[in-house]
Design a protein around this nucleic acid. Sequence first.
DNA 1: AGTAGCGCTATTGTGCACAAAATAACCTTT
DNA 2: AAAGGTTATTTTGTGCACAATAGCGCTACT
Lengths: 234, 234
Amino acid sequence: MNEGDIHAILTRVLRAGRLPGGVKLGEHRLADIFGVSRERIRKVLHRLGAERLLDIIKNRGAFTIEPDLRESHMVYEARRILESGMAAHLAENLSEAQIARLRRHVEAEGEALRQDDQPTWQRLSAEFHFLLAEMTENPLVQRQAHELISRTLMLVKRYETTAGSACGCEEHRAIFRALAARERGKAVKAMTTHLSLVETRLRPTLCEAVGPSLDDVLREEIARASREATIAAE
Amino acid sequence: MNEGDIHAILTRVLRAGRLPGGVKLGEHRLADIFGVSRERIRKVLHRLGAERLLDIIKNRGAFTIEPDLRESHMVYEARRILESGMAAHLAENLSEAQIARLRRHVEAEGEALRQDDQPTWQRLSAEFHFLLAEMTENPLVQRQAHELISRTLMLVKRYETTAGSACGCEEHRAIFRALAARERGKAVKAMTTHLSLVETRLRPTLCEAVGPSLDDVLREEIARASREATIAAE
DNA sequence: AGTAGCGCTATTGTGCACAAAATAACCTTT
DNA sequence: AAAGGTTATTTTGTGCACAATAGCGCTACT
């Protein structure tokens, strides 16, 4: 297990919000779980700290961050700024192939919703925004968008969206239509209102997700990673 | 000299583009210059690598990045996306006080230009964009904007802008007017055209800045940092 | 004379051992 | 019995020593 793998696994776990807030990630413990030396873990932990995925407190250790609603407003505002800029850019630069790809995506979303397939819809719903970021074909924008979107995913996990799956899909459709029609202003507006609506759908109270233990989550994710690695190797 | 200080100093030097590209930052050498242990330097170097301010090549060391024009297009595109989003946001959210502050800034820019005070104008010109980022009052946006703007400053340092200081100022004025009038669409447009123009002003050829040596630059910056520290302490 | 192979040196990577710090437990004292 | 202080334990931080690797120069051979 090399350093990059460990970083990827922890990033995945943290961004998916699979751990409650304030969980301590002890160096020795992680070293045991991953079967590597403590130094290796230390480096990864500090890197994750620099990426703001963990709180590193001097002489105390690394802790999962506890997102609160004040922060949530900040994150959604940042997303409105960045993603409305993306929308403006995309409205003027999308290729026909990309538009077709987007159309397929929103249709898949609608299909999942019709069949009441909650997990699939939830996944597709998040991927819609990642997809838009990829379509800018700009690594810098992608990285920034990734960071912000992941952060909202953590929030949604904790402050579960009250209801309304239905509305979300229609909002994505509206964004798509504006982009396909290359109407810049309309796309920007659709994006900002969508993100504002998503924000209002957050519960004001924290729902204490009594997730599985740190060890279990990590071991599961390690198994998944090694599985994917073997598939890729074939 | 603690770790955060070292990071700050190196960040400052790198972002200002005071070193040519491809310069090697040897661990032992830096440890000597800063008067700290090699491990301390190592951590800082790796952090800077994660922040893409240095290239870390395994078993080779840390090198200053050599920005090329392909990258420059990417950076300016990212800025157009992010900062047009900022402009849209600011057009609808600026307070009167902030508008006044902006007005003073563009007037200062014009004044520096009239007096042909190149250094001051150059500084103010960059600060205009930092100022806009600050006015979003969103730390996430500020960090992202900072990162992108700093990167273009490195580019400008290397591919010196051919001429036209004059035009830049007028463009900032146009952005300001649109923001002050709270005309969202116009502000977005002014911002994107400004950034596009700035990009076209880059020389297509690399100008080999035979800057002072690594040691000199760093020692100078260390002196500056300690000077500021003593002032702040009083 | 040019090139290929080889060994040396300089530099980075890694693990280990010890130091520092914080938390937790325990004991004393009021 | 509660509070405060003290010690012990656990956990992180740091420096050091050694290992690994890449770059470089040398030599020898064609």
